[in-house]
Amino acid sequence: MRRPPILAWLFVGALLTFLFAPVVCVVLFSFNDSAAAGPPIKGLTLSWYREIFTNVEYTDALRNSLQVALISASCSVVAGTAAALALVRLPRRITAVLAGFFVVPMVVPALFIGVALLSFFTRIGFELSLQAVIVGHIIVTLPLVIALIGARLQNLDLSMLEAARDLGASGPQAFARVLLPLIAPAIVSAALLSIATSADEFIISLFVNGGDQTVPVVIFGGLRTGVTPAINALASTILAATVLATLIAGRLVSLRDVAR
């Protein structure tokens, strides 16, 4: 028997601790019964959560974030699934060009997308608002949807569709009864990860919100006066939503398919 890889576990443990330390810290201090968002822990309370669900500034932000996440994820999933379906069947040359095209939103830093959108919207007279934020979030979630669903489609034998057609199914029937059930898990996980991405997106929202603040924008605004337990509770609420979405998404698709 090989000896257990202790060093490997030590390294992996240290790295994961580093990655999760800030998250744990924020969640922990959101329950702290003290006006200061730091040590010592004086006792546990839910009062900060009561505050964020009653204070209008926070509830507005939560409602805005929810609305933006649901609308942008829906748009991205519909347009992205359609695009992914076309990309696997288009001639290879066109697919390569389009795949490169859809990577652009992933590699351009979000700050540049934010200021570019701000310049563009003010130029064409598009009012800065939640709609503008939704546009920005569709831009960043579309590539994610296309990548996730594209990965799933690449592992499918698309000749099944032709078989369905040969057996008398119409195009829409073949899609709804054969293809859709096969890619449904990927679609759901793409939707969930889009929601998580949108709920967490900060920079683009900061530039184009025009006063309709989402949760991360409110958190950032609150940080000017220092970290407060209410801010931690607000952040933890979003964290709970994004982590839950990611957990479910991860159950639905194989990570190996995606990391390829």
Binding site: L16, V23, C25, V26, A37, L239, G250
Partner: peptide, 19 residues
């Protein structure tokens, strides 16, 4: 790691002030 990727960009930054 994927969960870490989707858990709080802003949180991962400002929490270091508390840490």
């Amino acid at each position: 790691v994927v969960i870490a990727m989707f858990s709080g960009y802003l949180v991962r930054v400002y929490a270091w002030r508390t840490l």
